[in-house]
Simulated scan of single mutants.
Amino acid sequence: MKRDINIFEFPLNLGLKKKEHEIEPGVRKLPDGFRKFDFHKEINPQNIFRLDAPDYSMEIDQESGVLNAEGIIEYAKEQADFISENHKEDAFNIILGGDCSILIGTALALKKLGNFGLFYLDGHTDFIPAHLSETAAAAGMDLAIITGTGHEKLTDIQGLKPYFLEENIYCAGNAETDDDEYVQQIIHSDIHYFDLYELRKNGFGKTAGDFLKMVYSKALDGFFIHLDVDVLSDELMPAVDSRMDDGIDYTNLREILKPLVHSPLCFGIEITVLNPDDDKAGSYTQPFVKNLIQIIKNKED
């Protein structure tokens, strides 16, 4: 990559409901887990920025029905300002979570910068309102929130609703297709939706290419990539909050991400939900880090 690279660390875990065996969700350790396997060293960014997150809690917001809504909103505002103050116009930005709710803060920042597209690569759609959520966790409804579905205290922060237009979004990789009510939410939206079956059928490289054609045809100001590591098969990445058997492999990941990451219109990529507490030996984190470095640096195996 010829562009300068910045790394932003947003170790937020308020968007997840903790498991019974947990003190708190371990996804907040993702940036440190990456550093352990030399991600930062190999990427060699111009800058590393970090915004520490508030302490974990399990507080249900009565207005929105969303877990820790107030804390997530305040962090999103700080995150948006933090990105706006520190990003450089021609830099590629790597954002390390944290859970998927960090997308809200990034979305706020991008809305202030212009009209952006979003490539949402995730093992779930995360496109449901709070009343359909079993956990009330924002990480499971972040795509809905950023497009305007949900309580306005989350969807209309600073009067910026919607942060992304549905028609400027590709959502790809959902393997949770057996819940009809869950899936119907996104099918009836204007989001370009490719579940795991359709993604394979359409082709990984072609799907990325089609998205780029859309970005250019609409003359968007740029686009952003969301990557939840649970889009990978459970065999490759079980250290996630919500495990599923099916998913893509690293060859698929390279095929879909390389044309996106190396587009001059790509603002950056965020990585979410990898939990180092579930992979203390690094058996799954290390190969992921290696593959991500290869994709970003445009290296072969």
Rank of each mutant, 00 (worst) to 15 (best):
8 F>T: 03
29 K>Q: 14
65 G>P: 10
76 A>F: 06
301 D>W: 02
151 H>K: 09
220 L>I: 13
108 L>C: 08
10 F>T: 02
166 E>I: 02
47 N>T: 11
148 G>C: 05
276 P>Y: 09
105 G>P: 10
13 N>S: 14
104 I>S: 06
40 H>M: 00
185 Q>P: 00
44 N>G: 02
2 K>G: 10
115 N>C: 07
207 T>G: 04
153 K>V: 10
197 Y>F: 15
148 G>H: 05
33 G>W: 01
257 L>T: 14
31 P>N: 11
153 K>A: 13
251 T>W: 05
131 H>A: 07
184 Q>D: 02
268 G>L: 01
92 F>E: 04
148 G>M: 10
260 L>P: 09
21 H>Q: 13
49 F>E: 03
297 K>I: 04
259 P>L: 06
288 F>K: 01
250 Y>F: 15
47 N>M: 11
6 N>G: 05
132 L>I: 05
131 H>Y: 15
148 G>T: 05
254 R>H: 12
252 N>G: 10
199 L>D: 08
258 K>D: 02
86 N>V: 06
179 D>T: 03
152 E>F: 02
220 L>F: 14
39 F>G: 08
99 D>S: 02
107 A>T: 04
145 I>P: 08
134 E>F: 03
243 R>H: 14
272 T>S: 05
33 G>L: 00
199 L>I: 10
72 I>T: 12
114 G>Y: 05
36 K>A: 04
180 D>F: 14
238 P>C: 09
72 I>L: 15
39 F>P: 01
210 D>H: 08
272 T>N: 09
205 G>I: 03
136 A>K: 03
74 E>F: 07
88 K>G: 07
255 E>T: 14
100 C>G: 13
79 Q>K: 11
54 P>Y: 13
233 S>C: 08
177 T>V: 12
205 G>W: 01
205 G>Y: 00
257 L>Q: 13
212 L>P: 05
280 K>A: 06
41 K>W: 02
225 I>P: 03
30 L>I: 02
88 K>Y: 12
118 L>I: 11
102 I>Y: 07
76 A>P: 11
154 L>G: 06
245 D>T: 15
220 L>S: 14
264 P>V: 12
108 L>G: 04
192 H>A: 12
177 T>P: 01
5 I>N: 12
104 I>P: 08
294 Q>V: 00
187 I>R: 03
66 V>A: 01
15 G>Y: 07
168 N>F: 14
218 K>R: 15
269 I>A: 06
167 E>R: 14
234 D>Q: 14
279 D>Q: 00
4 D>M: 14
15 G>L: 08
281 A>G: 10
284 Y>N: 01
235 E>Y: 13
189 S>V: 02
275 N>H: 00
165 L>P: 00
64 S>E: 09
65 G>Q: 10
73 I>S: 06
158 Q>S: 11
141 M>E: 06
94 I>V: 14
114 G>L: 07
42 E>I: 08
265 L>Q: 15
98 G>P: 03
287 P>N: 05
166 E>G: 04
251 T>K: 10
30 L>A: 04
34 F>Y: 12
122 D>I: 08
68 N>G: 02
74 E>C: 04
232 L>T: 11
176 E>H: 13
74 E>S: 13
279 D>S: 00
135 T>H: 01
